[in-house]
């Protein structure tokens, strides 16, 4: 019953988020100094053509009617057409989203691996110099501006050392693998194009590392804190005292329990990575959603900006919901509305 209640809440929440996001972006887009009709009709269009465009866009309607129309279209899955390319924004975004997802998942993988391994290591040596050093490094990680770090990594590993490729998803001479999943690495592996796979992985490394380095600190701190707590619990001490190898206790018993609070922040972490990717993608010229939305922001292409914000906010709510379900599955005691 409680679980059902929670699901209903989440769905309502989803609706509220969509309403709120659209309202905010809608209001912003109607505060623009420029005239969208003028923008779409072209700089040399006469007043008649602009008037026609205005009517076609529904801009001659009162604001609330325009908003209602926008929501109505949205419910049919129609996010409108880009002011710049005149193509449906949802399709444009869908075309670049796999690139962003591939980058984010790789970053998440690196960051979780680093966070868990170093977090456990620090917790086990709680209070030692190693622990202090790791904590300091983690805090420094979240203190470094990602755009600056990306720039410096690019300069060092590509510019100075020349051991990693510079920008983009693939060398320009190579043709991308036929799209199956949209992930170059996965597609290349599935099609046995090993040279492409290798190249794609090399391209992934620096941007993913940049994103991971600025986000692993948060994960590490949580893992470390909950590990310390779990390790001090009686049943862990008993287990160690009863002669079970220390390694087994740490990884099989303690870590499993310490991961529970960690799971709850994964959603937040994913969101942070997504926003981080907007900046990091521009530095590494990663052809993903971040680069796309940034271009849209500079072109004041509001249909595109609105589509991006709505999709991302929805994804955020859904991911948090999934994390909640996961959390409930791991930890059956918690069944109340948060």
């Amino acid at each position: 019953m409680m679980a059902l209640n929670r699901i209903v809440w989440r769905l309502l929440m989803l609706l509220a988020v969509v309403l709120c996001v659209t309202l905010i972006t809608f209001v912003i887009s109607h505060q623009l100094p420029g005239d969208p009709a003028q923008l779409m009709a072209g700089p040399r269009a006469g007043p008649e053509a602009i008037e026609k465009m205005r009517a076609a866009l529904g801009l001659d309607q009162p604001l609330h009617a325009q908003y209602a129309r926008y929501l109505h279209d949205l419910l049919q899955g129609d996010f409108g057409a880009s002011i710049v390319t005149q193509r449906p924004v949802l399709r444009e975004l869908a075309a670049v989203f796999p690139a962003t997802l591939e980058l984010m998942l790789t970053a998440l993988f690196i960051s979780v691996t680093l966070g868990v391994i170093l977090g456990v290591a620090a917790a086990v040596r709680h209070g030692s110099w190693f622990d202090h050093f790791i904590r300091a490094a983690a805090t420094f990680g979240i203190s470094v501006p990602s755009f600056w770090l990306g720039l410096m990594l690019l300069l060092i590993f590509y510019g100075q050392l020349g051991i990693l490729p510079g920008v983009g998803r693939l060398d320009d001479a190579l043709d991308p693998p036929a799209a199956m999943t949209g992930f170059y690495t996965l597609d290349a592996a599935l099609q046995g194009q090993w040279a492409v796979l290798r190249n794609a992985l090399e391209h992934l490394l620096l941007p993913a590392l940049t994103l991971a380095l600025v986000s692993f600190g948060g994960m590490l701190r949580i893992i470390r804190a909950s590990m310390i707590e779990v390790l001090s619990e009686d049943y862990i001490r008993t287990a160690i005292a009863s002669g079970i190898p220390r390694r087994t206790v740490i990884f099989n018993h303690a870590l499993r329990n310490a991961l529970i609070p960690f799971v709850t922040v994964l959603g937040l972490e994913f969101a942070a990575l997504l926003f981080g990717s907007v900046v990091v993608e521009t530095i590494f010229m990663w052809p993903g959603a971040g680069s796309l939305v940034l271009e849209a922001i500079f072109a004041l292409d509001f249909p595109m900006i609105m589509c991006f914000t709505v999709i991302v906010s929805m994804a955020y709510v859904i991911i948090n919901f999934a994390v909640d379900l996961l959390y409930m599955a791991i930890n059956p005691q918690i069944r109340e509305i948060g």
């Binding site: 060398d171 001479a173 190579l174 592996a189 090993w194 040279a195 796979l197 290798r198 190249n199 992985l201 090399e202």
Partner: peptide, 12 residues
């Protein structure tokens, strides 16, 4: 795995 692919380097 990817480094096994060095043989494709000429083509690339």
């Amino acid at each position: 795995a990817p480094w096994l692919a060095a043989c494709d380097d000429d083509a690339v």
